[in-house]
Computed example of a mutant assay.
Amino acid sequence: MRERHASHHVHRAREFEAFVAGAAGRLLHAATLLTAEAPDVNPRARRLLALSLAHTYACWDRLHGEDPYDRARQYLATRFAREAWHRYGVLGRARRPPAGPLGGLTPQERLILVLRLYEGVAEEQAAALLGLPVERVRTVCDRATTALLRPPAARARPVAAEAKAATP
């Protein structure tokens, strides 16, 4: 009996190691995009990844044919959303903008954009995962995409000030 349990644990560990070898890089990249940290300095993203993988390992025997990557991604997304809620709350307390490529977006915009565009999650699935209406997910994704493709122009000096400076 003990040998069977030991064999099961070894098999489970090998399966999980193979999963991590194949999925950890992509999940870390997704977490780095979510946290908007620099790819080489991303402690929050690494923490999110570790928590997501630990949760997936804890549920490993109960997956029963479910895709472990989907489970890990779901946990990563919901954990990020929960942490963002606790960190910034409804009022979005003052914060230093993250330096990553998605740093100009709000946490919700980053989350929806990463799920939809980087991970390829359908609007309906993203909405169900986040507890939002499909229309809200679509609107936030469109707004975030527009913000990335058309960043606000640098503040220009007012025309009147330029005209005054040019006159002798």
Rank of each mutant, 00 (worst) to 15 (best):
A77H: 10
P101T: 05
E162V: 07
L91C: 04
P43Q: 00
E135V: 14
A161R: 08
A153T: 03
W60R: 04
A84Q: 05
G103R: 13
A165K: 03
A94W: 04
D67P: 08
P158A: 15
P101Y: 01
P158T: 02
R157N: 00
R87W: 07
A81D: 09
G89L: 08
S52V: 09
H64M: 12
R93V: 15
L76Q: 00
R82N: 04
L149F: 04
V121F: 07
R87E: 15
A153V: 03
A165V: 05
G89F: 10
L115T: 03
G92N: 02
P98W: 09
A166H: 04
P101W: 00
D67I: 12
L113W: 15
R71V: 15
Y118R: 02
E83Q: 14
T78Y: 06
R150E: 07
T56V: 10
L129E: 11
A147E: 01
A58E: 13
R47F: 13
R95F: 12
L115F: 07
T145I: 04
A156T: 03
I112C: 05
A128Y: 08
A84T: 05
L105K: 15
D142W: 09
A160L: 09
G100E: 05
P101R: 13
A81H: 13
W85M: 10
V121R: 07
E66L: 14
A144W: 13
L148W: 04
S52M: 05
A160P: 00
T56R: 08
R73D: 02
L49C: 06
C59F: 02
L117I: 09
L63Q: 01
P152C: 01
R93G: 15
Q108A: 01
T167N: 01
V140H: 08
G65Q: 06
L113F: 15
V134Q: 14
D67L: 09
P152V: 05
V137D: 00
Q108I: 06
G89T: 07
A147Y: 04
R44Y: 09
Y88W: 14
A126D: 08
A58F: 10
A84M: 05
V159C: 02
V121T: 11
R136W: 07
R44D: 13
T78M: 05
V140S: 02
L129Y: 12
A166C: 06
T167K: 01
A165D: 05
A122E: 11
G89C: 06
R87F: 06
E162F: 03
L51Y: 04
P43E: 00
R136K: 06
A81L: 10
P152G: 02
A54G: 13
R82I: 04
P107Y: 05
P98E: 02
A161K: 01
S52C: 09
R62A: 14
A50R: 12
R136L: 09
D67K: 05
A165L: 07
Y118W: 07
K164I: 09
E83W: 14
R143S: 10
